[in-house]
């Protein structure tokens, strides 16, 4: 690692002022599972690293008037261990569980996963399918936006150098919404996603799809929604054929690339399969409720 200064923030406000003070060549350090790797590979050469792991106001999981609030510093392990999330959002537990291994899940944070913004992030799809919103704090106060607006491109979000992600909120209307997440990686442990997918749905009258939201990871510059597939399903009867057709349509919503991990063509096959399977699993969850 190259030399840098190190400073700790005790709160989100303090983090913002430290970032403003030392910017723009500063880096925010939370779980560090990505940042430290980048620092060691000299991908960043910051003057100052601002550690926010002591900012208690960025922690905690709670259900409030707005919905389910998860602080940006909530670790993947905390998500897996939270009784409310276990009960209501098994997809979030599963998504957290597929990240790295125990050690990295104990360090890595939800906010860090979203801010790092790699297309293959595992936290994104289930949250996006649940229409999650995020709160961003900067020198001029806070702003709220949909998760989709937060992502700009590979490794790029709307965050300015002096802003931090405060929290992630799943809106009240979606609490308990049947959701499933599936990830396909090159091995079972410590895998990066070739493709991941999440589907959230309610079952409408006459066993029809209602408010279906489908999200895909690792198949476009950022985590995306699959509107063609969603539109197709809305109001249709829940059948295996319709789920399979939604899978095919989801492929059209995606722009997978060829890389050394997999070909675009194989990724398209996976999108269809994973979309279909998450819809099916989410429907099963709905039936069990």
């Amino acid at each position: 690692m190259r030399a840098f200064d190190f400073v700790s923030a005790e709160s989100a406000d303090q983090a913002v002022s430290l970032l403003s003070e030392h910017g723009p060549n500063v880096i925010v350090l939370a779980g560090g599972t990505d940042i430290l790797v980048d620092l060691k590979h000299a991908k960043h050469d910051p003057d100052v690293v601002v550690d926010i792991t002591r900012a208690d106001d960025l922690k905690g999981i709670e259900v409030n008037d707005e919905g389910l609030r998860m602080g940006a510093l909530v670790t993947h392990t905390e998500i897996m261990d939270d009784p409310y999330i276990q009960e209501n959002f098994p997809a979030l537990v599963h998504a957290a569980h597929t990240i790295g291994a125990v050690q990295t899940r104990n360090l890595g944070t939800l906010g860090g996963n979203l801010v790092t913004c790699v297309p293959s992030m595992d936290s994104g799809p289930a949250l996006m399918a649940l229409e999650a919103e995020v709160t961003v704090a900067g020198p001029d106060g806070t702003r709220r936006m949909d998760l989709e607006e937060f992502f700009v491109g590979p490794r790029k979000t709307v965050l300015e150098h002096n802003e931090v992600l405060l929290d992630v909120i799943i809106p009240k209307r979606n609490l308990g919404k049947p959701t499933d997440f599936l990830k396909f990686g090159l091995r079972k442990g410590q895998a990066l996603a070739l493709v991941n997918a999440a589907s959230a749905l309610w079952v409408g009258e006459g066993n029809t799809f209602k408010d279906v939201k489908i999200s895909l990871g690792a198949v476009a510059p950022t985590v995306i929604r699959a509107p063609a597939a969603e539109d197709f399903l809305e109001g249709r009867e829940i059948t295996p054929e319709n789920m399979a057709e939604a899978g095919r349509l989801a492929v059209e919503d995606a722009k997978p690339i060829d890389d050394f991990r997999a070909s675009a063509s194989y990724r398209r096959d996976l999108i269809a399969v994973l979309t279909k399977r998450t819809l099916d699993n989410a429907y099963r969850l709905a039936q069990n409720d």
């Binding site: 030399a3 840098f4 200064d5 400073v7 700790s8 923030a9 005790e10 303090q14 002022s17 100052v48």
Partner: peptide
Amino acid sequence: MTDDVKVADKTDSLT
């Protein structure tokens, strides 16, 4: 706000 925060020294550059 930042007064009570201890900032570590950075040696300017290795050169």
